[in-house]
Computed example of a mutant assay.
Amino acid sequence: MARYIMQRLALGVVVLWGLASLVFFILHLVPGDPVRQALGGRASEETVAKVRADLGLDRPLLAQYQSFLADLIHGDLGRSIALNASVTDILGQRLPPSLLLLGYALLIAVLIGVPLGIWSALRPNGAADHGIRLITTFIYGMPAFWLGLMLALFFGLKLGWFPVSGYEDGAAGALRSLTLPALTMGCALIVIITRTLRSNLIQVLGSDFIEAARSRGFSEHRIVFGHAMRNAVIPTITVLATLLAYLIGGTVVIESVFRIPGTGSLLVQSIFQRDYQMVQAIAVLAGIVVVTASFATDLLHAALDPRVRIQR
C-alpha cells in the first residue's frame, strides 16, 4: 500500500509541474503587454519599464520560468499586476465561496443522485425507471446558465426563497446565497450519478455472487447495501472525481451568473485584465484541487478493492 501511495503522489507532482509549465508558457505567448494594460494608455515608458523590472518581466523567458517554479515551490504566488496586491491575500478572500460552492454542489448531487440511482436500478424498465431517465435526460440537456436563470426566476424572484445574486455574510447567509448556484451545478452531476450508479448496480445485481447470496437466504436489503453497493459505487466515485474538473470550470459561468465573489469570477476578470500572476495562480490552484481529489479517489478505490493496489 505504501508503494502504491508513493506512486500516486509522484504522478500527482508530475501532473502539477506539467500544468504549471503549460499555463506559464501559454500566457506568455499571448500577444500584448500586461503591464501597460494594467497601468493604462497614459502611463509613460519609464513607468512601464520600472513596473516590468519590479515584476521581473524584463528578464528572459526561461529565467522567468525558473523563478516562477522556485516561488511556487516556496508557496509564493506573486503579486497581482491589475490589483497591486498579493495573489495569496486575494485568493484567501475569494477561495472560500468557491470551495463552499463546490462542496455544496457535490452534496446536493450525492443526496439526490444516489437514491434515484438505487431506486431506478431496483425497478429497471419500470414506470419509475423510465420517469427518472426521462427527467435526467431533460435536465442534462439544459445549458447551465439557462438553468441557473430559470431557478433564479422561480425560487428567487417568484417564491422569494433565496437571493438571486450576491454573497451574504455568515454561515446561514452563505448557504442561502449559494443554494441556487449549487443546485444549478449539482443538476448535471445528479444526472451522471444516477445514470452511472443505475447501470453499475444493475450489472452487479445480475452477477453470480449476488445470486449465491440470494440462495443463502440473505435479505434483499443486505444484498443491495451490504454487497452490491460496495462494487457498484467504485466506478461512480471514479466518475465523480473525473467530473470535478468540470465542476471547477463550471464555477466560472455560475459565479458570473449569480455574481458570487469567488475564484471563477476572479479568473474571468484577470483574463480580461491580462493579469499573468493571478491567472497562473488560479490555474495551478485548480490543478491542485483536481489532483488531490484524484489522489483521494485512488486511495478510496484501493481501500474498497484491494486488487487495485496489488496489480500496480
Rank of each mutant, 00 (worst) to 15 (best):
N200L: 07
L122G: 01
C187Q: 01
L159V: 10
D129E: 08
F162V: 08
G160L: 06
L157R: 01
P124D: 03
H130K: 15
C187M: 15
L178K: 08
T179V: 06
F145E: 05
P143R: 00
G117W: 02
G186Y: 08
I132C: 09
E168P: 04
G186V: 03
W161K: 10
S120D: 09
Y167L: 14
L153F: 12
L175K: 15
A182Q: 07
M150C: 05
H130L: 15
L157M: 14
S165E: 13
M142A: 08
F145R: 03
G173Q: 02
I190D: 02
M185T: 10
L147K: 10
G126M: 06
R176F: 06
I132E: 11
L134S: 06
P163K: 01
V164K: 12
T179E: 02
P143W: 02
I190S: 00
I118Q: 09
N200R: 08
I132G: 04
W146K: 12
G166L: 12
V164M: 13
D129S: 01
F138I: 06
G141E: 00
G173D: 01
L147Y: 09
L122Q: 09
T136S: 09
G186P: 04
A144N: 13
A172L: 11
A128D: 00
L116D: 01
L180T: 00
N125L: 14
C187D: 05
E168G: 07
L197I: 01
T136H: 02
W161I: 07
A182E: 04
L153Q: 13
L157E: 11
T196W: 07
D169W: 00
M142L: 11
E168S: 11
F162A: 02
F154A: 04
S120C: 13
G126F: 09
R133G: 05
A188V: 03
L178S: 03
P124S: 02
T184P: 12
